[in-house]
Nucleic acid binder design. Structure first.
Lengths: 346, 346
DNA sequence: CAAGAAATGAGGTACGCCCCTCAAAAATCG
DNA sequence: CGATTTTTGAGGGGCGTACCTCATTTCTTG
């Protein structure tokens, strides 16, 4: 049997009340007595039953999950995963609200974070690291509210944890795939991005370039074309590049835009075959992989990410440690043949 | 405030005892009443407080984890993951013992399973599906002990759940990789297996062949060479095949034997470059991927597998449902650039 | 319609811990 | 040494749920 407070009291030769005072760091106990109780605790190997403690405290954890109010399928997918995880988490008295902010408005985000109630047990945040955000996160930490960064790290704040994958490494994995799929012989790769102001895109590109340069020097990686989220712009820049780079055999998509790309390619050059590699598993990329319009994606598991974020926040709120191995997200490669069953199927 | 059983009783107009009967699926309640209670539950959005429930039950779960006593690195890795997961699980009053059986001796396994105490809350088992094993598993189910199959399914027993990946699908993923890495132009693929009596190997080969045939008809997949776990045999069959199949550019390793293969290739043909694809992430394959002696592996996450097995057993013991999405293992592709950090590093 | 069976209610105890109150014991101090 | 302060003990109520017993009500069925 696991030892309980009663066993400690017996072992230490004190009353339950005293054990309780020591355990909860309440005043009015002599140092000698504290020592005796602690000795008993370590001797018996007592570990406080966190569940029972929380029950007694009738403590509940109010978490805030903060996401950009973007219509990108990746964010939508993540939001869904977080909603599911939050739903599941209610079973462990964790109540997580999903809050959204206008994607471009960091001041709105800062206000949102500043307005979080003091009883917030933790914040899971997906946001780019701008000075405004940095300050807002620091303010949270000053208020003793744990913060975990999701998807995109906030290394220069003192966030408690980052749950997600390293974008540079993800870009490297994409490069590795691209290089191997293209095979030997010279070729060119077109790189498409929404906007190169996004940190993730920059990092992915960096990793991609590094691998291509060192591992596949016979492949020329062209400059990033920015579509700014517009299908028309994409069609235009693609038309240009297809003329100027007739040897292009690969396309690397840094961010979203898979659907627009598929359509553009279908009209522009229906019978030219490209190796297309992108990021994130969404309904679009899922369908594209299945149909063979996309060869591979590099991604992270949003369900895992969501559960991990909440677990880590829970652990921080309890001031407990967490399982490093379980909380480390993997860089996943998804191709047609290892498409996970379920997520976006009818 | 979160609704409690008391709220449900009030809402449904029944007593606490009845709510309890419904919640815990105890007999003696009319269907109408059950319906009323369930309506109240969904109306109030009640979610059972697991922590309180477990506390009240003060039940501890004694699980048995049964693995072959094989020296294969995959089994060793899995055993380690299971040990870690069991360690973690003590926090949720789950005590899991690791039991091993001689890999070839299914009767020993049957005896082991039959000797499990009646208070066993669940068994996680990795074993091939032979008639003896099938009967032993059925006997467990008759004793009302939940069983989850790990790694290799036991479809013809009434095991409660399978945690692992579909070997046919894993073989397909390997085939997809092989075909794409080899590129266009005719080539041949050498397939190596320990023994084609192992179900996993057969299934992988089946998936591999299917993909190669339909997706990469220009690639000829040679007959499986069996090494029977002996490095000498491997060297011999490899020497033969390298003579008879000079166009072989790919090697598919169905099971273990990565180390022996590396050594054989290094001595037999140090400057011939093959596309090598295998299964499972172990210290050997990790090192081989890193060194470029191996191009990709198809695997499952052993940590996830271990935790999933225990979680599912817990859920079964509680007669609770579990999160399908969380318990579905993914077919992972690991290459040099997405090697997970940590597991086998110094 | 009565007897028997089934369904329901009432109430208690327990799980491990938190938190509060009040009295008793021990230590400290002038 | 007595008075004051500090430390300790004893005990109770509660958190949300499980599980048990016994009485009472309601439904079946012959």
């Amino acid at each position: 049997m696991r030892p309980t407070v009663i066993d400690i009291a017996r072992e230490a030769g004190v009353s339950l009340a005293t054990v309780d005072r020591v355990l909860n760091a309440r005043p009015g106990v002599r140092a000698v007595t504290i020592g005796a109780v602690n000795d008993a605790i370590s001797k018996l190997g007592y570990v406080r039953d966190q569940a029972a403690a929380n029950l007694a405290r009738s403590r509940s954890y109010r978490m805030a999950i903060v996401l950009p109010d973007s219509d990108s399928q990746f964010v939508q997918t993540l939001a869904q995963a977080l909603t599911d995880a939050a739903q599941q988490a209610t079973a462990t008295r964790t109540e997580a609200r999903l809050l959204r902010f206008p994607p471009e408005d960091m001041h709105a985000l800062a206000t949102l974070l500043a307005d979080l109630p003091d009883d917030t047990a933790g914040v899971a945040l997906m946001a780019p690291e701008t000075p405004v955000v940095r300050d807002a996160v620091r303010a949270l930490r000053t208020r003793d509210i744990p913060v975990v960064a999701m998807v995109s790290d906030l290394p220069n704040t003192d966030r408690d944890h980052f749950v997600g994958i390293d974008s540079v490494a993800a870009g490297r994995a994409a490069g590795d795939l691209m290089g191997r799929f293209l095979g030997p012989g010279p070729s060119q790769v077109i790189v498409l991005g929404q906007s190169m102001l996004l940190r993730d895109s920059i990092d992915r590109r960096r990793g991609f370039d590094a691998v291509m340069q060192s591992g596949f020097p016979h492949v020329e990686v062209l400059q990033t074309l920015e579509s700014h989220g517009s299908a028309a712009t994409l069609a235009q820049v693609m038309a240009e590049i297809l003329r100027s780079a007739p040897h292009a055999r690969g396309i690397y998509l840094l961010g979203s835009g898979h659907r627009a790309l598929s359509e553009t390619l279908a009209t522009l050059c229906p019978d030219r075959r490209f190796v297309v590699i992108g990021h994130e598993l969404t309904p679009h990329t899922h369908a594209a992989l299945k149909a063979g319009r996309l060869d591979a994606i590099v991604t992270q598991n949003p369900g895992h990410l969501a559960r991990s974020a909440l677990r880590v926040l829970r652990a921080r709120a309890d001031r407990a440690a967490f399982d490093e191995g379980q909380e480390r997200l993997r860089i996943e490669i998804v191709m047609r043949e290892n498409l996970p069953a379920g997520p976006f199927e009818p």
